[in-house]
């Protein structure tokens, strides 16, 4: 460990096991075969890619377990050019609006800034992160 002030010292923030901290319960959405797991409101159908929420955060209705499509449209995307945790640059990130499902953060199989609405499919996970690839050139409005 460096003795230089501010370098290599433990931090108050929980950095997680990926960067040398203690492990924490994994908060990321889970992929189960051909579906992203979460809950859906039985009243307004609002989708959430998390479990354990006590009620629908949009209308307070009851929620039930749900399986969401792995396909959707890119809401936005970026290429990160700095190292973050175990990730080395460049790596691509996108907010993906799953078809009839929630918005989830995905890593892009090929780092790129995509046009809004680019069709993506979640193809698997890498280091526990959802990974998505473009399906074709189709763009939804």
């Amino acid at each position: 460990m460096s003795t230089e002030l501010g370098v290599g010292r433990p931090t108050k923030r929980r950095p997680g096991a990926a960067v040398g901290g203690l492990p924490v319960a994994d908060p990321r959405p889970l992929l189960d075969g051909d579906a992203v797991l979460g809950v859906r409101c039985t009243a307004c159908r609002y989708p959430v890619a998390q479990d354990g929420v006590p009620w629908c955060p949009a209308c307070y209705g009851p929620v039930e377990p749900a399986r969401f499509a792995t396909t959707g449209a890119a809401w936005s995307s970026t290429v990160v050019a700095i190292p973050v945790g175990e990730r080395r640059p460049p790596f691509g990130l996108a907010y993906l609006d799953l078809d009839d499902g929630p918005r989830v953060l995905v890593h892009l199989a090929e780092p790129a800034v995509l046009p809004i609405g680019t069709r993506l499919r979640i193809t698997g996970t890498d280091l526990g992160d959802l990974v998505a690839a473009t399906i074709d050139d189709e763009v939804t409005p």
Binding site: G16, A25, R28, T78, I82
Partner: peptide, 23 residues
Amino acid sequence: LFSGAIVPEATDPEGAASLPLPG
């Protein structure tokens, strides 16, 4: 605390997925 950008919070779904604040 940090020698560069803020280390994302590992208990956050997007922090755990390596989304930095500039990202």
